[in-house]
Design a binder for these strands. Structure first.
Lengths: 163, 163
DNA sequence: ACAAACCATTGTTGTCGTCAATGATTGTTT
DNA sequence: AAACAATCATTGACGACAACAATGGTTTGT
């Protein structure tokens, strides 16, 4: 612990505060920062949703359903990036709460269309600000235009990488 | 029910392509993007480290040790954000590989100082580009200055939030 | 009719994060 | 000095989560 580092290591551009202790080591890596902030974001989401008994995955599924008017579970799996087996449990929970309902696909009997039920719509309306609240708390140290910039960058990364 | 924080400033929407299909639903939220990209980042890290038998947590611990010349496990826990119980297993693995070694603290006999062994130093030198490779792959759609910008923004968020 | 591909589902495994409990040691109080 | 509380490393347990294999029912192609 006697690492009184006075040497400011040249970290290409001094735009980041190099003096901060947490900045040493792998913390300086953007990939690692992404990994760590992702964990924190998930925790905040789940904490905010805990009151409603749902978790982030449920919420994401509901939000997606609100935009497509029914989707096969296969589609949910691909679009949300969750494993098909995970979709089953999520839809089970949401169906038990009356937020969504499974309907047989007219043309393909092995598919099951998951559609947003009125109760789910109401829930989404009530908890509309959950995601915004989490993001606000997470990005508190950033100003409005910085948040927007971060949003754009993250969107680009998420898009071309996993879209 | 969830009035977490009165919406401070209206985030400008419109600069992101809203027409893209992946953009619907919760994907548009910065917090959710962070969560999702964090998962992807962790996967990439673990995949890149799989050859060496280590995982992201091991690597992060090694990288941190390389900067401090010995740290109590308690310090590792706080600095890396892992639970003390997690540190035990990580140090066990790394000690088994000869990458680190536990030394008794001179002033406090209940503390155990974890220090980087020569083998661990060599490993870090060999796998120096792992983190950079992952970040490059992750941030492929971004240009150099955009990556730098993202890095700065993420650092700020991670700093004031968890520092 | 037969085989291959697809969809939803179940089950399993390994990792991860959190918490509770223990033993040993140190600091503090009386 | 003795009793008490706090700290550190460690172990264990529990639930959440992601990735994968396997199954039954269904459609498609030959």
């Amino acid at each position: 612990m006697t690492s009184r580092k006075t040497t400011a290591e040249p970290v290409e551009e001094g735009s980041v505060d190099e003096g901060a202790p947490w900045m040493r080591g792998l913390h300086a890596d953007a990939g690692y920062l992404l990994y760590r902030l992702g964990l924190r974001s998930g925790q905040l989401f789940n904490a905010a949703l805990q009151r409603s008994g749902l978790r982030l995955r449920h919420y994401a599924l509901l939000r997606y359903l609100a935009t497509v008017e029914g989707a096969a579970q296969r589609e949910l799996s691909q679009e949300l990036g969750y494993d098909p087996s995970a979709i089953v449990g999520l839809v089970d929970d949401l169906e038990r709460l009356g937020f969504v309902e499974r309907r047989p696909a007219p043309d393909d009997r092995r598919r099951r269309i998951v559609a947003l039920a009125p109760a789910g719509h109401d829930f989404l309306r009530d908890s509309d600000e959950v995601a915004r609240g989490v993001t606000d708390e997470l990005l508190a140290p950033l100003g409005p235009q910085e948040r927007e910039m971060l949003h754009v960058l993250l969107s680009r990364v998420a898009h071309t990488d996993g879209g």
